[in-house]
Design a protein around this nucleic acid. Structure first.
Lengths: 332, 332
DNA sequence: TAGTCCGTCTTGAACGTTCAAATGGCGGAA
DNA sequence: TTCCGCCATTTGAACGTTCAAGACGGACTA
């Protein structure tokens, strides 16, 4: 195992000073073309790579982005969504010269403590927060400390002075798309299996379905059914809507779990789920698919703009809202 | 945002030298009890945390464990397995004073290049490799470079001189358990849906089923069916075994994907899958469950033993084989 | 009494990088 | 000719920690 190659080794070989090597790597325009070449050759010949730790000592930048690994959901069907997002994030971060550092935390308070701990020890340059909810204390905390961060998920109900950058997928557009598709297929009584009001994500998805039905002159209220997430819950809820006075012939669901439950009724109805999880693919369930790799790339992009951009945090914090896609399968 | 608290700040406040503070934190037995107290108070009062970057400069230890995020499988059903493992790993690592650093890589060659890159820049102390296969070049490379690592998965077919530490779950024990359960329920013609021979994991799982049947005087050969992974593949394979001269009445499957396919035949047979993925839970599929949190903890434990242990890598590299559990559900 | 050792604490140096300031050569303007 | 400014490069210092070595006092030993 070769000993560590330092910038001094490169300098010696290229017959220049340490600083010139550093300049070639960080501010090449300061160095004469000929010298640049010579240094670059020495770097390549020796296989030199700048030590991140040493660099961090001077610059205060760790080139680390911290992300929380979600505990697998009880239900777990949605686990793969985070999985794919994380994969995309790691890949995009690497391209931008960053690495992803993981942490876990039980609840929000524990997470704030972990923020503090991480910042003291590993000093990540930024955080990516997922699954934001109403009154999320994490965004306010980070904002207060001036720590760069992005959320994957809109700032549901956050005070407007917290104008931080976020990335999200337009859930309403997704359910609208699904509803439109079912209307085009001739359905009129299109139900919605959703979560209880109060979750930003759930309300957003319901809104897309409701407004699309309303635009056709159909009152959605009667076809709306609220339940906790889960396959059995979905099955029960679907039965309720199927056995109503005016039974539904199609269902748009807020999650694949609920949609899967609807399929298990065995009744001949069209069903569309949400998230295009592996289960959906496996059982032929149509579903709204989130562009997770793009979302991850957008997160990294927004962070890089804050971290590597010019002035300190100038320009308006950008927000990105991505369009989901409807994946048609046997079920619809 | 308070400026960074350094060891010198603590030293000043406790009226001792930098080194004494360092000793209180790293080798408390060298410091007099009274002084220790005083320093500890100062640490707490100032909220001091040792900077990992500075520490790394001196000690050469980054307290980082590198793990590759698997690209979501085509099928994706098994994605959540890695998810849960990763979560456990992050948690266990944190308890041992380490953090998990992610990377991605297309194929084995790209991964070797990434090893080199990471080691040059972030200098992780160790790697955790998942899904090892026959003739895996990664273990040999890391071993050659004397980089500490553990694999989650046995060294299938690796030369015996590569006696590195590993953690795995006894797949054969899992399928044996499943088979035994089906025998106890009165089944005799118990089929196996497996992957083509040549994958260590698949062959291992097949072996547990085969030896349990053989012990009952039943020749397994006739009930063995090999296919690629996937739900449709499982459905087709199950049909083949059901329509054979001596049809099976129960199936043990190498994966939940195949088991799900078997369920979709709609025939009345008992089915057991493998991995206890969310899908299994959702559709009531019995499945063999791997203790992933324990496996992750064991990985961290083996690494910590190498990294924080006494002498340099003395003692035999430990191996851990964990027992899976059978989760009974509607399907069996 | 002098020498040795041990327990406790301090001092100086080093890890590898980049920032800030200094150096030296060269061309052009006064 | 002299001086200034610019370009290319070098030098010294600093980031925060731990290692290695040293200093000091007191107890124990010869």
């Amino acid at each position: 195992m070769a000993d560590k190659v330092t910038i001094a080794d490169v300098a010696r070989r290229a017959k220049v000073s340490r600083q010139t090597v550093s300049n070639v790597l960080n501010s090449p325009e300061l160095v004469r073309e000929e010298t640049r070449q010579r240094v670059r050759e020495a770097v390549k010949a020796l296989g030199y790579r700048a030590s991140q730790a040493a660099r961090q000592m001077r610059t205060g930048r760790s080139r680390l982005i911290a992300v929380r690994v979600e505990p697998a959901q009880e239900d777990g069907i949605n686990g793969s969504v985070f999985d794919r997002f994380l994969h995309g994030l790691t890949e995009s971060a690497a391209l931008a010269g960053y690495r992803v550092l993981l942490y876990t935390a039980g609840d929000h308070d524990a997470e704030l403590a972990t923020f503090d701990d991480l910042l003291g020890v590993y000093e990540p340059d930024a955080f990516v927060l997922t699954s934001t909810d109403y009154g999320d204390p994490r965004t306010a905390w980070l904002w207060g400390q001036r720590i760069p961060f992005v959320t994957f998920g809109r700032p549901w109900g956050a005070p407007p002075e917290l104008a931080y950058p976020w990335v999200d997928v337009d859930g309403a557009a997704g359910t609208a798309m699904a509803t439109r598709h079912l209307l085009d297929a001739g359905h009129r009584h299109i139900g919605f299996l959703g979560w209880p009001a109060g979750s930003g994500v759930g309300d957003d998805r319901r809104a897309g379905w409701a407004r699309t039905l309303a635009a056709e002159g159909i009152d959605p209220a009667e076809f709306d059914h609220t339940t906790a997430d889960g396959v059995p819950e979905g099955e029960a809820a679907a039965h309720a809507l199927l056995d109503a006075a005016r039974p539904v012939t199609a269902l748009v669901c807020v999650s694949d779990s609920l949609a899967l439950g609807a399929l298990r009724t065995g009744r001949r109805i069209a069903v569309v789920g949400f998230d295009d999880t592996p289960v959906a693919r496996a059982v032929g369930l149509a579903s709204v698919s989130q562009p997770l790799a793009e979302a991850a790339a957008a997160c990294v992009d927004l962070l890089a703009r804050q971290l590597d951009g010019p002035g300190d945090g100038d320009g308006p914090p950008a927000q990105v809202l991505l369009e989901p896609a409807l994946v048609r399968r046997l079920s619809a």
